[in-house]
Simulated scan of single mutants.
Amino acid sequence: MASSQFCNQNFRPVSVVCVGSRFSNPAVGFPSLKTWNCRDLNLKTDYLWAIRLSLVEPKSAVDVQRLVGFLYDDLPHLFDDQGIDQTAYDEAVIFRDPITKHDSLSGYLFNIALLKIVFRPQFQLHWVKQTGPNEITTRWTMIMKFMPLPWKPELVFTGTSVMGINPVNGKFCSHVDFWDSIKKSDYFSFEGLWDVFKQLRIYKTPDLETPKYQILKRTANYEVRQYSPFIVVETNGNKLSGSTGFNDVAGYIFGKNSTVEKIPMTTPVFTQALDAELSKVSIQIVLPFDKEMDSLPNPNQEAISLRKVEGGIAAVVKFSGKPTEEIVREKEKALRSNIIKDGLKPKMGCLLARYNDPGRTWSFIMRNEVLIWLEEFSLD
């Protein structure tokens, strides 16, 4: 999470107190950053800038906690028909993300409108916190579809936004985004542009029901998802990339059960390794979300069973191509290494998720995923 840094200089209150290292606007009272005597500010490049709101003397009388509550109510409308409350923002509001910048309310609103047209964003607000005397930080997930491309690729961004407050009028005067997936979030970030470009590739996801999940965080190497509970029909398999047992579990949903009930097909097909060596494997088909354990027909075969997966939080890596045993094990090893490197605690085993019929899908557009359940996870 972005945090405040404090400088050791006093100056008179000004009408706008959100300032950056790349600009100084005397017309609205911006002090030049070069004149500051900063203890904690590390200016490594001319691109680094942050909100300096704790410098104003005397202390602001702005009710920051009221604004925290306001953002909880207002930001969920960022991309819907209602929209945000424009009166809460300064006319000179400054917006920055790794590849976009605007220095006015009209530019800020134009950016929101453009995203709605081109990307159809789904915005989810996780939390809002006061992180400085005149600063609020929000954490969010945004999922977008790039509509101009025929395959409408899904782009996922997670991160924090640091919102600066003008202590003179209590309005937001800056909004700076930091993405979890890149190290350099300063405008203009070629790393950020490359992060967007990488997500434009084609993945084929069948138009079938999938387990419900929420993306909590997307790093450069994996996503962290929170899965809702789901039910699987499963039997023993032979290896992670194998198909042994698939016909048996598929037979159950096609009507080979105690009531001859046909159950709609879902995606993906899971193979789950339960041990550290990834040798003890089960193959699973997820049942539709509206099914309950007590209403499902019994399997006709002893080797087939129904089980409720309680859900939870998983780290997930996505990849295309034919998921051979060697590739899947390499993906699992790399994912586990990255999880541990980031200070998370992975559980034993993993799941391979295969979304496509290998006989009807070109390998380069196949969607495959390796999932590892996590012991615990926090967005704080």
Rank of each mutant, 00 (worst) to 15 (best):
T219N: 15
A353V: 03
D177F: 12
D90E: 14
G245N: 04
T361M: 00
M147S: 08
F246C: 04
G20S: 08
S228T: 06
K152T: 10
L379F: 04
C38Q: 11
N368K: 00
F123V: 05
I285Y: 10
T259Q: 15
P167V: 13
S185E: 06
D85R: 12
V316I: 04
Q124E: 12
L193N: 02
P148G: 03
R225M: 09
Q130Y: 08
S32D: 01
R354H: 05
Y355W: 04
K44H: 10
K256C: 01
S241D: 10
T138N: 07
N42G: 08
P229R: 01
G349M: 12
K347R: 12
I340K: 07
D81R: 13
G132I: 00
M366Q: 14
M366F: 07
I215M: 04
F110E: 03
D342S: 06
P13Q: 05
I117M: 10
F110W: 01
E234G: 08
H77C: 13
W49F: 15
L105K: 15
F172C: 02
Q130S: 12
L55T: 06
M1L: 04
R367E: 11
L374R: 05
E292H: 01
M348A: 09
L115Y: 02
V260Y: 15
T259S: 10
S295M: 04
A88I: 01
L48I: 10
M293L: 15
G192P: 02
G251S: 15
V286I: 04
S60N: 13
D177S: 08
D63V: 11
S4Y: 09
I202F: 14
R120H: 13
S378T: 12
N37P: 11
F190L: 01
T324R: 00
F197S: 09
Y72P: 07
M265I: 01
D97P: 13
E310S: 04
Y187G: 09
V118S: 12
V232D: 09
P211A: 03
T324W: 01
T137P: 11
Y203F: 14
D290K: 00
C173L: 01
L75H: 15
Y203P: 06
E277N: 10
P299C: 05
T244V: 14
K318Y: 11
N8G: 05
L53P: 11
I165L: 00
A88L: 08
Q214W: 11
T131A: 10
Y222G: 05
V156G: 07
G132M: 13
G343F: 12
S282N: 11
S104T: 15
E302S: 10
I94D: 06
F254T: 06
S305E: 13
P167R: 05
T138H: 13
G132V: 05
I51C: 08
L379W: 02
L71G: 00
N356P: 05
T137N: 13
Y203G: 04
S21T: 00
L379R: 03
Q9T: 11
K152H: 15
L75D: 08
A273T: 02
S161F: 08
A88V: 01
V269Q: 10
M144G: 10
V168Y: 15
V118A: 14
F23N: 00
K101C: 03
T210Y: 02
C38V: 13
I112Q: 07
F70W: 14
V249T: 03
P148D: 07
T266W: 02
R39P: 02
D73F: 14
P153G: 11
I165A: 02
L75V: 13
D63S: 12
W127E: 04
V317R: 09
E135S: 09
I304L: 02
C350E: 02
L335R: 01
I313Y: 00
V56T: 12
